[in-house]
Design a protein around this nucleic acid. Structure first.
Lengths: 205, 205
DNA sequence: CCTACCGATCGGTAGG
DNA sequence: CCTACCGATCGGTAGG
């Protein structure tokens, strides 16, 4: 507890509100885990990036794994919260899916590092957190699959459409793009719509 | 050099031909890099898996990075050698692509661990090897893109097909599947054909 | 292929 | 948030 409350504003290099410091640390971890992988980035690296010694990080986070878990669970929630309303509306299914791809790529665009950690580093969690994140992945996949199944049920898509294949196809573009960051250029709605046009043409009756 | 040549066969637990021992070590590394990531797997882990102390590994490989480079370059060659004849023939383009997806998934099926290391761990190489493997990735992508462009040029595919989107779509399914190993079940030609049917329906005129 | 070892770094802690 | 430190493990080597 800090009893030294002051009314004057903090200087530029001065103390940050306590929560902000933690967020800054998590953001640094996110960047480093994305670039070097979870095991390839050390607490020392994270400390350097926020300008403190690694030992001091433990005043803000319990341990390295907690940072990974926080990045992964925050991002997973971000995807699910953003896509659920889009994919489960009562719009035309092809509209839902086009918008869904835009939204999915939009979430990636908001924080590409976190998206990458969510998709590629979450597997380095162990025990209960590991199961938890796998469940989140499955929940997200189910939301997408449901949309394709709606498309078939409402006769908007071919009755013989393999919804599993379509779902995996939709998710995989969105995710593979995180592997090619910087090479694919900015993620725009145009890019999302290009994928949609090929994918949807393959689904429609 | 071993001057102790014998005509009798080796016992089951006995010495292996020198090249085979090296291959066994690389295979162990492959499995471990796939499961725990390059930085998450130690030389000690590799040693345990082949039944020797880590120091002894250096009689067969120069260092840890050499193992990664060998896995990645072998697998990259495997993909390019397998797919080049399939995708550049003068068959109908949709036939080439269907067969291409089968072949791609077939290469993954042959050695899922190596495929996974190729696609997700190669980025942990540095310097020249890193550039080399990026170039290999690009070469492979170009072979696929060329097929889609042939499809448009020969009026087999829609003239307004976004070949970049189609290429990324094709590659991403193939690659994303390595992330879901064990969950997707065995990689069969049927699975490959399911993807083809959605993808090609989205490409045809 | 083992013994025995190297310096460096790992994640993490105590006490202030 | 720093100082100072912990035991464990890292990739790698010398000599046999």
């Amino acid at each position: 507890m800090d009893t030294n409350d002051r009314l004057s504003p903090e200087t530029a290099l001065g103390r940050l509100p306590p929560g902000a410091r933690r967020e800054q640390i998590i953001a640094a971890a996110s960047t480093l885990f994305a670039a070097r992988g979870y095991h390839g980035a050390s607490m020392q690296d994270v400390g350097e990036r926020v300008g403190m010694l690694k030992g001091s990080l433990y005043a803000h986070v319990a341990n390295k794994e907690e940072m990974l878990l926080e990045i992964v669970s925050t991002t997973s929630r971000r995807f699910i919260d953003a896509l659920t309303p889009v994919l489960t509306g009562d719009d035309q299914v092809s509209v839902r899916i086009r918008l869904g791809l835009r939204t999915h790529l939009g979430v990636i665009h908001t924080d590409p590092d976190a998206a990458r950690v969510f998709m590629h580093e979450g597997r380095h969690l162990e025990g209960r957190p590991r199961l938890w994140i796998e469940e989140a992945h499955n929940r997200y996949e189910r939301i997408w699959r449901q949309a394709f199944e709606d498309g078939v049920r409402l006769s908007e898509f071919r009755h013989d459409l393999d919804t599993t294949a379509a779902t995996l196809l939709a998710l995989s573009v969105g995710n593979w793009i995180t592997t090619r960051q910087g090479q694919v250029g900015d993620i725009t709605n145009d890019i999302a719509d290009s994928f949609s046009s090929v994918l949807l043409a393959g689904c429609l009756v």
